[in-house]
């Protein structure tokens, strides 16, 4: 276990460092100084104020020193202050994080809940009617821009049918609701965003599930199980699914950046005050401290996800545990 952890640190340490270099680098791609956007076009900002700001962010220093300074604060989870409202970046992000994590977690459950059964059922009879039908649907789903689907859903379910709310996470009279009513209200508002966040991944994931199950169901032990007279249901879900799920764990880890990135689109369209929308607003306002912080946090969240996926794989597959012990 120690060895495994050490390996992980050696592998992921450099990646973590590179992530911060890239996040830092983006801010300095801009022609001129990063504070220009916040100050130059604003006649109220005096030269003196601008210099004070540059000093505050250490922009009058050489780049490596600036980076070292930024990193020094970063390890203490201090991402500086927002250019827009001067509030600590960490505070701004922390108040936005829960809603984004909630949406992503639910959409993850939705993805698995749809993609796994879909993949398994397609794999039972490859090229059967069900498989061909889902293949076509999956291809279409995979090719459709999710923001466009979101717009169509808004227009149809929200504007035409008035079934679902199309923006925000609460109704106007949310404050007057009781606890259970509040939960229901929020859930009600999250149906479309969660569905849209899951949309593209369902297609990809069900494909992986299918091909993984097709491979597994060809194995000798499946034939043995069937020959023993094990019920088909048990063959599929006990013998088959357990092994078929393994590659999916890895794919799940790899698809995390898309999920986090997807929240930018879903939250912007549905006006949800989450991390994705914060990122979009920060980008549009050239609020660099927030942008840098979110790029770093997004990447680190992905890394944690990948680590959990790797660990989960090791837990699920005894062969890997045995090998790493040897």
């Amino acid at each position: 276990m120690t060895r495994y952890l050490l390996q992980q640190v050696l592998h992921r340490g450099p990646v973590l460092l590179l992530i911060t270099v890239i996040s830092f680098g983006i801010m300095h791609l801009a022609p001129g100084k990063p504070t220009d956007a916040a100050t130059q076009f604003n006649p109220k900002v005096s030269l003196e104020a601008r210099q004070r700001m540059e000093q505050l962010y250490g922009l009058d220093q050489p780049l490596p020193r600036q980076y070292a300074h930024w990193m020094g604060r970063l390890v203490r989870f201090d991402f500086g202050r927002s250019f827009l409202d001067d509030r600590p970046v960490t505070e701004k992000i922390l108040e936005r994080l829960p809603i984004t994590l909630t949406i992503n977690l639910w959409s993850l459950l939705l993805i698995l809940g749809i993609a796994i059964p879909l993949g398994v059922l397609s794999a039972v009879r490859p090229n059967g009617l069900f498989d061909r039908l889902t293949t076509v649907l999956v291809f279409i789903g995979y090719s459709a821009p999710s923001f466009w689907v979101a717009l169509l859903c808004m227009a149809w379910f929200g504007v035409t049918l008035h079934w679902l709310p199309i923006s925000g996470i609460h109704s106007l009279d949310y404050e007057s609701f009781g606890m259970i009513h509040r939960w229901l209200d929020t859930g009600w508002h999250l149906i479309l965003p969660v569905g849209i966040a899951a949309f593209t991944s369902v297609a990809g994931m069900s494909r992986y599930m299918r091909s993984s199950m097709v491979d597994v169901l060809r194995q000798d032990y499946i034939r043995t199980a069937r020959a023993k007279g094990v019920s088909e249901r048990r063959v599929l879900f006990h013998h088959g699914l357990r092994n078929g799920l393994l590659p999916v764990i890895t794919i799940l880890g790899l698809s995390l950046p898309d999920l986090i990135g997807g929240s930018v689109i879903a939250e912007t369209i549905f006006s949800i005050p989450g991390m994705g929308r914060l990122f979009y607003e920060a980008v549009m306002a050239r609020d660099y401290p927030v942008v840098m912080a979110l790029v770093t946090i997004g990447a680190v969240l992905t890394m944690i996800g990948n680590f959990l996926a790797d660990a989960g794989y090791a837990v699920a597959d005894p062969r890997i545990r045995v090998e790493s012990r040897a």
């Binding site: 990646v15 992530i19 890239i22 983006i26 980008v283 942008v291 990447a299 992905t302």
Partner: peptide
């Protein structure tokens, strides 16, 4: 390959938006 891992772990849309907004 560490560089590849790094690029893969940053959500693509973050990079796209940030770089294009800056430049």
């Amino acid at each position: 390959m560490r560089f590849v891992d790094t690029m893969l772990s940053i959500p693509t849309i973050f990079l796209l938006l940030a770089i294009i907004a800056v430049i």
